[in-house]
Design a binder for these strands. Structure first.
Lengths: 338, 338
DNA sequence: CTGAAAGCGCTAACAC
DNA sequence: GTGTTAGCGCTTTCAG
């Protein structure tokens, strides 16, 4: 057995036909091949364990069957759920997904974007959270622009910071709706556990909540910032408790932080929701069974992954399209009426 | 702007040098290019927004920078955590990950495997759960064998059912250890919530638990089977409760099923762990903060992803290597001493 | 319906 | 150092 994959030339020789005929028989074409030859080629291919070389096909055809997906961290349920939706859609379109996990490092995001561009995928979906770092945004453009100019398609999921088709998550609005609901439930002194200031999601959700709160009540929510993760929520909650601020509910900017916050409360003997109500954002499915059940803002993550791919596979529009996704407030036990 | 990406030829022309020089200047080579020319080429490339075409490079070089990863469902934390580990390792090796989500459908697994083979990745990692379907295993071999024969490397994570390098998860042993521990805690009448019989994980964990139980106690654990998911656990638990079986603890074959089981208990007014203890398997990080904290068997998922890639990137061994991974029993509040 | 041959974009001998 | 050129494996005109 040769340490070399069988090529179409091998198959053609084995079947006693020309390269062209072998190609037509194996990998569709408008041309029709006589049944007898067709069978002979298929047989030869099977005997040789032949698979077409995608690289060579792409070269010859001038296009690939690849789409790139860039996420912050694939082990984060927010991103893995989006990835699942996108993978589903990719399957329907006969596309293969190339996955890049940036770890939230801007430099790595750039590297991966360049790498995906190099792969000449049909499209690239940027699901990582946008920051408000103008320099980085500009650098992204130096990759995105030529890719788009060469016919590549790019979409983003999240905030519309880039001039590309975007599945816009209405973070502000979702957080605002949540604030209104929390207020309606009778809470009076909210706190917010936010992520890093440079993350746009973090700011939007915080600002949205604050805005919603102001609509129906006076007083400003207290804010504590930390990492955008379970551990960040845990630490932020501890600090909040340390501060002695008088609060009756906490809005953590995502479900993971909310879990961390609840863990911190448990450590400190603060009963949720008796002593303190907690709400999150995202409605991560793995966390739907926690107790007390978490009040949150549901995002259609699977759908968002699909939407991004659909957006990016449709004809180019003159200007970047925005497909809005609204979060739905889900009230559960962690914020009982007060 | 042309709807065509700039090519190396374009760059060479723009810089007034030969194709070879442009290639040497841009994409490393032992040959050295004079500084002045080097700069001119880089400049031209930047001006044109040039990125090498990975397909063309692969053709010319005869190798790619791709690795394939096949999982059942990327939104399942078990797989997404493994994927994160593998993506990390891939980054270190300068490789790009192609992700395939099979949805547990054998036919789709085959399709994706063929597709990954077509892409001529350096390696393919099969993380999906193995079944005991001999026919399917044979079909997998028709893809795996020629890929391996042509110098491709394949590794699996899970049960060593395929003659390839495998990160062997010691499911039986982990479940056995858990059973022993449960017994030591004073439980007497265990039940098992298993997944589909055709899944090897499911059988191994069940059999391991049963074996461990027999070592130190008499009586057989009751078994109820359903899907390998949160909903499966939920339904199985309901059926178990309906059956009226006298039990004092439940071992759900993975954490997701355990969550479903706990949800079912809540619905039925069965207090966990007061009325019934519950244990899971995997130690999914997102679920580490649930209450009552779940007793489980911890698997080093991140590490497993890394190991698989390392295994597959090292020199070929004469025979398939097996790298064992042992689960560690973590006792938490959901199984208090009785 | 089948075959010959011209590329696709790039690397790597091989010359100079 | 730099340039020329022969492929890499495949698709697709263009002839027959």
């Amino acid at each position: 057995m040769p340490a070399r994959a069988a090529t179409l030339t091998d198959v053609a020789r084995e079947a006693g036909v020309s390269l062209a005929t072998a190609s037509r028989a194996l990998n569709g074409s408008d041309r029709v091949v006589r049944a007898e030859l067709h069978a002979r080629v298929l047989e030869a291919a099977a005997r040789l364990g032949y698979t077409p070389n995608a690289q060579a096909q792409s070269m010859a055809r001038g296009s690939t069957d690849l789409v790139g997906l860039l996420v912050n961290d694939i082990s984060d349920p927010y991103f893995s759920t989006i990835a699942a939706g996108l993978a589903d859609a990719a399957e329907e379109h006969g596309l293969l997904v190339m996955l890049g996990s940036t770890g939230g490092r801007p430099a790595r995001e750039l590297e991966l974007l360049a790498e995906l561009r190099r792969q000449r995928g049909r499209a690239i979906v940027l699901a990582g959270s946008r920051t408000n770092d103008r320099a980085h945004l500009r650098e992204l453009s130096t990759q995105v622009d030529p890719f788009a100019a060469a016919g590549g398609r790019v979409a983003a999921i999240g905030e519309p910071k880039l001039p590309v088709d975007t599945v816009v998550v209405e973070n502000r609005r979702g957080a605002r709706d949540l604030a209104v609901e929390i207020r309606r439930l009778g809470y009076r002194r909210p706190a917010i556990l936010t992520g890093p200031e440079r993350l746009q999601v973090s700011r939007d959700r915080r600002d949205g909540f604050t805005a919603g709160w102001r609509e129906s009540a006076s007083g400003e929510p207290v804010c504590v910032a930390d990492e955008f993760s379970r551990d960040g929520g845990f630490r932020a909650m501890h600090r909040l408790l340390d501060s002695g601020a008088e609060i009756d509910c906490v809005f953590a900017i995502n479900d993971l932080m909310a879990m961390g916050a609840m863990a911190a409360c448990r450590e400190r003997g603060v009963d949720v929701p008796q002593d303190l109500a907690v709400a999150g954002f995202d409605d991560i499915s793995t966390l739907r069974d926690v107790t007390p059940a978490l009040t949150t803002v549901r995002l259609p993550l699977i759908e968002m992954g699909r939407m991004a791919l659909d957006l990016v596979l449709n004809d180019v529009a003159a200007k970047p399209r925005r497909r809005k996704v609204r979060g739905e407030v889900i009230v559960r036990e962690s914020t009982p009426p007060r």
